[in-house]
Design a protein around this nucleic acid. Structure first.
Lengths: 128, 128, 128, 128
DNA sequence: GTGGTCTAGACCACC
DNA sequence: GTGGTCTAGACCACG
């Protein structure tokens, strides 16, 4: 399965699903027109409640990323790729902005922020 | 006032106060031994519930950043500067790590992340 | 084919079939005694599941609009015209009542409702 | 209470709440800035499950009609009036269009539709 | 089998 | 007290 749920993430489980599905579509892991795992199946795999999955899928339908095929399941909608590429950028940017703003408010100058960023990026590469 | 509360920040109001007070101490805006505003005064200034301020101050006392001067109020404790410098670094790092991890999981490579980061950093400088 | 299925209509596909067949009989497009398309044929034409067509036809037999000719198929029953004329009126009335009631509950007065109705009726004529 | 839930309406309960709250705001029954009934209170009054109310309120927040005041409740947002006036018109129009389209497809001409409409409008006035 | 809705009840953070 | 999230389990319409 292509989703990793982290319960102590701060983010709600349903929101993690929403974000990661969007990222998967943006990344091409999920293709347009493809059926996503059924509510019950995904719930079983992630060992969470089906309602939580349903809520995430509902959100994704509101965002026009998924589309309901009655009695069949949910597919990645036609316009999803574009939406998700934009959403991925927007979501990451928003979080970057937050942390930069807080760092700045906290009295760190651009150079210090740069240093921290490079350190973390390197340690991420190493882990990978 | 040196605090900026953003209701739609995701972070709880009390937590924003805690973080920003720590950052102010780290930055030297709040000096060791200085009296912080009273619960009521700060609540009035930020137009938030006094309970929320009280909770933030309680947390700051638990973290040994503030200490109570009986009958006078709360002052920045002697060891606060060191604690807050460390806390600031730790808090910023943690958020940086989160966003980098999510970006990486979302299929962005280091270069793309770099680009986004530089863009945001520049736009932050411009605003300032 | 004389049927138009709209997946995002709110109404179930089988129900759209039922209604439209009744309307076709009321309108005389489908004559009494005429053979309707076979389940498989109609399903192929509308690119929907044969079960869905079968369910619609079952409903129409229950409503005595269609009747089975063993080994031949389903034909429009003798009394169908009368039934369908009544049904058409009843179905349209019911939907009109619903929308009027909701508009009224929503605080629109008769005049405002009239205006909206005339606008929509005109735009319908134009399209036609 | 200003909401009337009809269980056999075809529309989901949560959707009836959404629509009626929007209509109430459009109509001025609910003023901008006003607190709406709490989730638990409304659930009690309508004798439905709090989750159902919560879902409706969530939807209304997505539609920027309501706004969460953490720990306090939900208020009608600043821009809500405009949104709801537009939404009311749009929702009624959509239903009118549906019924007119179906009537037209069903072979009724404009005059017949007019007659039906006038009849229903009169009977509505009488009931009121 | 599928999604959609609803109920019931729990726990959490926040004010 | 408030909303927000999650679990558990039920029923329905649909294909």
């Amino acid at each position: 399965m292509f989703l990793h749920i982290d319960a102590n993430n701060g983010l709600a489980v349903y929101d993690q699903i929403v974000r990661q599905i969007k990222f998967s579509v943006a990344d091409g892991v999920l293709a347009v027109g493809e059926l996503v795992p059924s509510v019950r199946e995904l719930a079983r795999e992630l060992t969470i409640n089906p309602n939580t999955v349903a809520r995430a899928y509902r959100q994704l339908q509101d965002d026009e990323v998924l589309e309901s095929m009655r009695g069949t399941g949910l597919i990645v909608s036609i316009g999803a790729r574009k939406i998700c590429l934009a959403a991925r950028k927007r979501l990451i940017r928003a979080r970057l902005q937050e942390v930069l703003l807080e760092a700045h408010h906290g009295g760190l100058d651009a150079e210090q922020i740069q240093t921290l960023f490079q350190t973390e990026l390197k340690s991420l590469k190493k882990k990978r």
